[in-house]
């Protein structure tokens, strides 16, 4: 984990106050290693994107950071009275519960209708104010969830795959909103992304997770990739490519083996549904040296 320590020191946002620190988090479930020795810091005004293949432990890590699950070992230190705004991937409102967007925003606080309308306007959804939650579409739901999180004036925003099920244009709009929020409110943002290659351009640090931290760093400048620009045109404005720099590879069983080509990363093969790394059930413990 030398790299993460180095990241901590050189991170250009290190001026921002430390909001949350996880050190050496490990987590096992049903005898399977889900997370192994994860350390990370989140600071004010910092945008961190967490990526990794399915089953990499992204959701588990987020749940542990949020305090929704308990780590097997390791330590989580939160800023005093840290206000966290959480945007889950999706929520299901039972039909039997009458709930307008207005009521949903007011569930954990007592905000006036004006405050609610204003916060919805910030995420471009003020027209939804008195719509029943059951009628809100997937993309709108993400924004309503975001608005609800923002009402608390959070110091840290945590979003679990907010862009899943969105097209590139929708993603870009969402990322643009998030960047504005960061700039205006100065909160830290932790973003889980299902996409291994396209991440939010404003991301300060990408963490690639696959049970352990595979690699971490700043996303590459999009302009360096004319091919992608050609492909997506201006829709890519809010997106950047992240190039993986692993110092190791995984074998068929997910075990870590030293890599001859530092740049090469098998996650890059573009077959996420067949990704061999998912089958890391027989991960061996002898990885300390990596």
């Amino acid at each position: 984990m030398n790299t993460s320590v180095a990241e901590k020191l050189e991170g250009h946002n290190s001026a921002g106050e430390l909001l949350l620190q996880a050190s050496a988090i490990s987590y096992r479930r049903h005898g399977k290693n889900i997370l192994d020795n994860i350390s990370l810091d989140i600071r004010e005004r910092e945008i961190i994107t967490l990526i990794g293949p399915n089953g990499a432990g992204k959701t588990s890590l987020v749940r542990i950071l949020l305090g929704l699950a308990r780590a097997g070992s390791g330590k989580i230190t939160r800023h005093k009275k840290l206000r966290i705004g959480y945007v889950p991937q999706r929520i299901h409102i039972p039909d039997v519960m009458p709930l307008r967007v207005l009521d949903f925003l007011n569930v954990s606080g007592n905000y006036s209708e004006d405050e609610c309308r204003q916060i919805l306007a910030e995420v471009s959804c003020d027209y939804l104010l008195s719509a029943p939650m059951q009628t809100v579409s997937g993309g709108e739901m993400q924004r309503v969830l975001l608005a609800r999180a923002l009402l608390k004036q959070p110091q840290l925003l945590v979003l679990d795959e907010p862009a899943s099920g969105m097209d590139v244009v929708g993603q870009q709009a969402l990322y643009e909103t998030l960047r504005e929020i960061r700039d205006k409110k100065g909160c830290g943002i932790l973003l889980v992304s299902h996409d291994l290659h396209l991440v939010m351009a404003a991301t300060d640090r990408v963490i690639c997770l696959n049970t352990h931290v595979c690699c971490t760093g700043r996303p590459d400048d999009v302009t360096a990739n004319p091919e992608y620009l050609k492909l997506f045109g201006h829709a890519i404005d809010g997106l950047a490519l992240y190039e993986h720099h692993h110092d190791h590879e995984h074998d068929l069983h997910g075990n870590i083996i030293a890599s001859e080509h530092c740049i090469h990363c098998e996650h890059n093969e573009g077959r996420p549904d067949k990704d061999v790394d998912k089958r890391s059930d027989s991960t061996s413990p002898d990885r300390g040296g990596q």
């Binding site: 749940r63 949020l66 305090g67 929704l68 966290i84 959480y86 889950p88 929520i91 409102i93 039972p94 519960m97 709930l99 949903f104 569930v107 954990s108 609800r148 608390k152």
Partner: peptide, 19 residues
């Protein structure tokens, strides 16, 4: 009552909100 409404919507959200 407010806490009950909150956990009926989503227990994770409620927990993060301090319920």
């Amino acid at each position: 009552m407010n806490a009950l409404i909150s956990i009926s919507i989503n227990e994770d959200l409620a927990r993060v909100d301090g319920v």
